[in-house]
């Protein structure tokens, strides 16, 4: 009897998880100022607010979850959630596995180092840090080869903390998070601030969900028109990054 009721509780728990009406959105939660977990455990950041604004525009209930970057695409494919709003670059490799909406902002790469002995000319011979599975890490490997001294980290803050510890000479990061980090950490400079690799950031969904994609695209258009996007962007970056 006891076992039966326990089983019932467990099963009812499962059914609430797969509630079909709620749109489940994943973000990384370790990528300030785009997505981050604040001291009270809440997800905050540009991506998070954009996601909420999109839900409001679509008039749908949403549930936001944090997911490690490494597993963010596999978990989407395994149906753990339906949408990725996590500042994900639209790349050909990813497009083979998932679909993207229209881009919601453009990204540039930056190189940050502690001093002037590092330059774009000798970068290939230095110890370089980047976040694994990002467009930055791919750019570095394509540029200098997979056998260059490249350290790959699970999160961007981990790469920055190694730069501070002095184990690496430079970090490759996306422009806006890099700017944010530079504002808070003295003694570091941009070696290159806006490397344009034609990178656009999109919202990731499973392949074949065209209905969801057009709904998200329409919602994106809506929040851009209404000025909601601009307001959120101004709040985080004091400029419109679209």
């Amino acid at each position: 009897m006891k076992l039966k009721s326990l089983l019932f509780i467990a099963l009812s728990g499962i059914t609430t998880v797969v509630n079909a009406d709620k749109l489940r959105i994943a973000t990384e939660g370790a990528y300030p100022p785009f997505n981050n977990i604040d001291s009270s455990g809440e997800l905050v950041g540009f991506d998070v607010e954009i996601a909420r604004a999109l839900c409001k525009q679509m008039e749908r209930d949403c549930e936001l979850v944090a997911q490690d970057w490494d597993g963010i695409i596999p978990s989407l494919l395994n149906n753990k959630y339906d949408v990725i709003v996590a500042s994900m670059s639209i790349t050909d490799e990813r497009k083979e596995k998932i679909d993207f909406t229209d881009p919601y902002y453009s990204n540039y790469l930056s190189v940050i180092a502690s001093g002037h002995d590092v330059s774009m000319n000798n970068l290939g011979k230095k110890n370089i840090g980047a976040q694994r599975s990002t467009i930055g890490s791919q750019w570095v490997e394509d540029e200098f080869g997979s056998r260059a001294s490249i350290n790959l980290y699970d999160t961007l803050p981990a790469a920055f903390s190694d730069l501070k510890a002095g184990r690496i000479d430079a970090v490759i990061a996306d422009y806006l998070p890099a700017t944010e980090w530079l504002n808070e950490n003295e003694g570091y400079i941009f070696i290159a601030d806006k490397i344009d690799i034609g990178d656009s950031i999109g919202i990731g969904i499973r392949k074949g969900e065209d209905e969801l994609r057009s709904a998200l695209n329409k919602a994106l258009e809506g929040i851009l028109k209404k000025g909601v996007y601009e307001k959120i962007s101004q709040k985080y970056f004091s400029t419109n990054i679209y």
Binding site: D70, I73, P74, S133
Partner: peptide, 10 residues
């Protein structure tokens, strides 16, 4: 892990 990050092939 780096290879998987590129090809997403289990």
């Amino acid at each position: 892990r780096t290879i998987f990050a590129r090809n997403y092939d289990l």
